[in-house]
Design a protein around this nucleic acid. Structure first.
Length: 733
DNA sequence: CTGGGGTGAT
DNA sequence: ATCACCC
């Protein structure tokens, strides 16, 4: 999937195209975009290695059902690949350690932390799956250009095809600056979240994404416009072009088009006959590396769903049980999110020997307002009603008087909105909403606009000081191209220097950048309260202190008061929220356990067993997770967990003594010292101070947060909150 | 029995 | 509601 280029013919063709586009009013040097693509290295595996550092040196595979969805680089060196079957993987690599990854809670939480971190630098961040983010840093680049007298024209990281390029007179200073921004952001991700990543720097999303994978773990690559033809030509087939999927790929093949060049050269009229003019254009543009699509900022998720797949489900009672299980965890997630769903959907997949690939069917229905409120409010009896709704939908698809055979069930809440109260504000609320997601922040593309909204400039140029990292260079590539290399001290404290003044007061918070929040104004985590409404404050919260808090924090606190109550009572009374995914790592045990068939022969209809997992209560909506998690520690019970037998290998006791000496006597019992010691020092410090403040107050931790905040303000509050949220990852489970 | 999610267009 | 795409 890399740099195997060839073929000078086509390069010339593309050059013409590139020249053509730069003949338009926007010439590269002044108006092209600078797009970053970040791709976390083997993301799930990294998260599990943070949770259990003992896994670092072992070949690790993340298992979902019968598939290794990803694996660490130790495992890759031993021949394991992504999406390999467990059987094949163990055959190739008998020492492979497997961790179940069906419960996405931790991955989702960490994923949003990455997005939030990026957004705190610039709001134009678009998620793609859990482990990728696009970022439009054009504004940041332009700001640096205009504020720096002698720009550093050197590239950080790799430059695609650099050996065949002449970089002596850098004609792409903006991409060079982009490469420095990318490096700084990757470094921020590493020091703040302990995750390594790759990045691609290019002039559009397609190219940034394609180039980011050129050098794989923990490196970055810049693609210059003169190499566009090369990188497109290096693709092994049309399917490698992002945007050309399964179906389109097959239709292209039917037209005799296999390679990217085939597609580039195919007569547009004929292509249009197959796909329609618009799609045909798009496809041929993609084949040429042209992609005008905007970086669409990610808001909070538009839907929350939960699903499970299985070999066979053929009785209504099984379905009912599974639906109840899925809904229970989905409702918890929805509740933490704080918004109210107004649509419910049930999706199934029927068994079909021949065409198992596709065949999902779904039915959806509105959720009555009162029920929606019970969900966001965490009311216990919402479950029964939802289950009955689900079963009605089920019977619209399945005639249960006859035989059926399902292999998947999915439940989904969508149409999420933040205000539940049917009155007043709802209208103004929706009216002020921007017409389309992503249009709030202007991104110039084809027609360069000179105007930029003031607030955009502001947010794009401000730097969250809490995140400034002037650490040493990442130890990866470090190609420096040529002279003009201003001294490194000149260009290192770059962010602060070139970006101008950080926000004076409400600093963008790592977790909750105020600007970011304001971008999604319609979303308010909790209905019902205005900040002046202190009626709901728990008795031990000082209203005076509360009033001094920033508005967004107040909202979070208020919503968490509710969340806390329910989280606690539910957690205690009903199904303990156990993490099913983490297995301590005794290799032999794991293997024998995993090799065992899920026990239940197909006949057992009582309760799916074996491969079932209880989802942990999900992370709160990510964009507020940091704030909220401070407050709802009660959901993070020490949880007398279901450790599997002989799990003592889960944490190396050898390092325990030394590490423990660094921990405060009152540190949470669920903190894994090994994990702790592996953290960046900054995080360790934050955690320590966080724990020190943790009183017996498990019940209403909000008080502490409220007290901490008034003088030190948001920054401190958020730092503490951020540290606290990391507690999730410490549970040895 | 490639997972467990997501998004947007039609 | 389904289909397409992405990871």
């Amino acid at each position: 999937m890399d740099v195997d280029d060839e073929d000078g013919d086509w390069i010339r063709g593309a050059d013409i195209l590139v020249m053509g586009s730069s003949d338009t009013p926007d010439s590269d040097a002044t108006s092209s975009r600078v797009i970053l693509h970040f791709d976390l290295d083997c993301f799930y595996a990294q998260v599990e290695m943070i949770r259990n550092p003992a896994l670092r040196n072992k070949p690790l595979g993340i298992q979902q059902k019968y598939i290794i969805v990803t694996c660490n680089y130790v495992a890759r060196d031993l021949g394991v690949t992504k999406l390999m079957s467990v059987t094949d993987a163990l055959e190739k690599c008998p020492q492979l350690v497997l961790v179940k990854g069906e419960d996405l809670t931790h991955y989702r939480d960490m994923s949003y932390k990455v997005t939030e971190l990026l957004m705190s630098y610039c709001p134009l961040v678009e998620r793609l799956g859990f482990d990728e983010n696009f970022m439009d840093v054009t504004e940041m680049v332009d700001t640096r250009v205009s504020q720096t007298s002698s720009p550093n024209l050197t590239f950080t990281g790799h430059v695609y095809n650099k050996d065949s390029l002449d970089l002596s007179a850098n004609e792409h200073p903006r991409l060079a600056i982009g490469s420095h921004i990318a490096a700084e952001l990757r470094e921020a991700i590493k020091t703040n979240l302990a995750l390594t990543s790759c990045a691609g720097i290019a002039t559009n999303k397609l190219l940034a994404k394609l180039v980011s994978g050129t050098f794989k773990p923990n490196q970055q690559t810049t693609l210059l416009p003169e190499s566009i033809a090369d990188i497109m030509g290096s693709l092994s087939g049309v399917r490698r072009v992002p945007g050309i999927g399964h179906s389109t790929g097959h239709r292209l093949k039917a037209l005799g088009l296999a390679t990217v060049r085939d597609l580039q050269c195919f007569p547009p009229a004929e292509l249009a006959r197959e796909f329609g003019a618009a799609t045909a254009q798009r496809l041929q543009n993609l084949a040429q590396g042209i992609d005008d699509s905007l970086v669409t900022p990610a808001g909070p998720p538009q839907s929350l769903s939960d699903e499970d797949s299985f070999k066979k489900m053929s009785s209504t009672t099984e379905v009912l049980q599974k639906v109840e299980e899925l809904l229970t965890s989905l409702m918890e997630r929805m509740h933490k999110d704080g918004r109210q769903p107004s649509t419910f959907r049930l999706t199934i997949r029927r068994f079909s020997a021949t065409n198992r690939y596709f065949s999902r069917e779904s039915r959806q229905c509105p959720i009555p307002n009162h029920l929606g409120q019970k969900i966001t409010t965490g009311s216990g009896d919402a479950l029964a009603q939802l289950v009955s709704m689900a079963m009605k939908l089920f019977h619209k698809m399945i005639d249960s008087s006859g035989p059926f055979h399902l292999t998947l069930i999915n439940v989904c809440f969508s149409n999420l909105h933040s205000k539940s109260d049917g009155r007043g504000s709802i209208t103004s609320f929706f009216m002020q909403k921007s017409p389309k997601k992503g249009q709030l922040v202007s991104q110039e593309q084809e027609k360069p606009t000179v105007n930029r909204p003031a607030h955009v400039l502001h947010t794009c140029t401000s730097l969250p000081t809490g995140f400034t990292t002037f650490g040493k260079d990442t130890s990866d590539e470090g190609i420096s191209v040529n002279a003009s290399s201003v001294s490194s001290k000149e260009n290192k404290p770059t962010l602060l220097k070139h970006l101008g003044t950080p926000l004076p007061v409400n600093l963008p918070l790592p977790g909750c950048p105020p600007e970011a929040i304001s971008l999604y104004e319609p979303y308010e985590p909790n209905p019902s309260q205005h900040h002046s409404d202190l009626g709901h404050l728990p008795p031990d919260v000082d209203p005076e202190v509360f009033r001094h808090l920033p508005e967004s924090i107040q909202k979070e606190l208020l919503s968490s008061f509710q969340a806390g109550e329910h989280g606690c009572s539910q957690g205690a009374s009903s199904k303990s929220v156990t993490v099913g995914s983490f297995q301590p790592t005794q290799t032999a045990q794991l293997q024998s356990a995993l090799l065992q068939p899920p026990s239940a022969p197909a006949a057992s209809t009582g309760s799916g067993k074996g491969d079932e997992h209880v989802k942990e209560t999900s992370g709160p909506d990510a964009f507020f997770s940091v704030c909220r998690e401070t407050l709802s520690t009660c959901t993070e019970q020490p949880e007398s967990n279901s450790r599997s037998a002989g799990s003592d290998s889960g944490r190396p006791s050898s390092i325990e003594p030394t590490v423990f000496s660094q921990l405060p006597s009152g540190h949470p019992s669920n903190v894994d010292p090994a994990v702790f010691s592996a953290l960046p020092p900054e995080l360790q410090t934050e955690l320590l101070s966080e724990w020190r403040q943790q009183k017996p107050a498990l019940k209403i931790p909000t008080k502490r947060a409220a007290k901490a905040a008034p003088t030190k303000d948001k920054k401190l509050a958020t730092k503490a909150a951020q540290a606290n949220s990391l507690l999730n990852y410490f549970k040895p489970s």
